[in-house]
């Protein structure tokens, strides 16, 4: 018998625990020729703001050892165009669509939640974007602001709510607890880690934005440690992410306490990564005679 891979994130019944991370899978259509979207647990679309955003000047990305830095600056079409032009395409598929929302003020987050209410399956509140001047990280680094954003968005919508937290904090547990107290349904961990690269011939930073967010295998140990820490202090489901490249990586996050995982940078390297991970998790469960994935979640032996 095939093992049961389904997971429940705040009422979202996912076929399997593998989602694709915000900003790494566009609006789905870019990858549809290469990946069967119906097979994915869920898609989290590129961060959306109220008004369209141009993003940062180039260069926006640079490769680093086992990773990359990005400073896209939340370029996106804006919520209206997302609803009119991007969402209908995704709606043709049997896939859970989660909108990643980013605002400069609490009011903007609330407005975004209102506009998307009933149109998407869930919201991921991005309080962790390191590449914008206002908003984003500012909220995710302050427990009181985290509480305020989450509770106000909570009042504005009944959609399942996920908080996407930043690793750029001293104690991730404090922020996670604030989000839970404010009524969050699930937590995404982690967004990218601030970093930079300098060109020694010009003595200039490579990224026009000076700093960018580090992602990819280089950050996996940090992400895993944070999932482990947060899993011990909150009861809401955790969506683990950060450097997941294969099924073993994903299983590590699940064992550490993640209910689901998200594949980010690995989509650029091999668009088939998420599908391979689904298969790999299934194989692992069969091999170890585990009938339900949930038996594995948080089963870390210390």
């Amino acid at each position: 018998m095939n093992p049961d891979l389904t997971v429940d994130i705040a009422g979202l019944k996912m076929k399997n625990p593998v989602m694709v991370a915000s900003g790494t899978f566009g609006y789905g259509e870019e990858y549809a020729q290469l990946v069967d979207l119906n097979s994915l647990g869920a898609i989290v679309v590129k961060g959306i703001t109220l008004a369209p955003r141009l993003g940062n000047p180039p260069p926006r990305i640079v490769e680093t050892p086992c990773g990359m830095l990005n400073a896209i600056g939340l370029e996106n079409v804006g919520v209206e165009k997302f609803i009119k032009e991007k969402l209908p395409y995704l709606r043709q598929f049997d896939i859970i669509v989660i909108a990643n929302i980013a605002g400069k003020t609490v009011e903007e987050y609330v407005e975004l939640a209102r506009k998307l209410n009933g149109l998407v399956d869930g919201l991921e509140i991005n309080i962790s974007c390191p590449n914008v001047v206002k908003g984003g990280l500012e909220f995710g680094q302050d427990p009181a602001l985290t509480y305020e954003v989450v509770s106000k968005v909570r009042q504005a919508t009944r959609l399942p709510l996920i908080a996407k937290l930043s690793p750029n904090v001293t104690d991730i547990k404090v922020i996670a607890k604030s989000a839970v107290e404010a009524g969050i349904d699930a937590i995404s961990l982690i967004n990218t880690i601030l970093g930079m690269v300098i060109d020694v011939t010009t003595r200039k930073p490579i990224l026009a934005n000076v700093t960018g967010g580090l992602s990819g295998p280089a950050i996996k140990p940090i992400a895993l440690r944070m999932v482990h820490e947060v899993a011990r202090v909150v009861r809401v489901p955790i969506i683990g992410q950060g450097g997941i490249m294969n099924a073993t990586d994903a299983l590590e996050f699940i064992i550490a306490g993640a209910t689901a995982v998200a594949v980010g940078t690995a989509n650029f390297v091999d668009p088939q990564t998420s599908l391979k991970i689904i298969k790999g998790i299934e194989d692992y469960l069969i091999k170890n005679n585990i009938h339900r994935l949930s038996e594995l979640t948080g089963s870390l032996q210390i």
Partner: peptide, 23 residues
């Protein structure tokens, strides 16, 4: 510099002419 190569990551932007800045 490219990451995805297929239009999803927005990493490869260049500046083009227009009334205001666009990429």
């Amino acid at each position: 510099r490219m990451a995805c190569g297929i239009g999803a990551c927005l990493g490869c932007a260049i500046k083009v002419k227009g009334e205001s800045t666009t990429y």
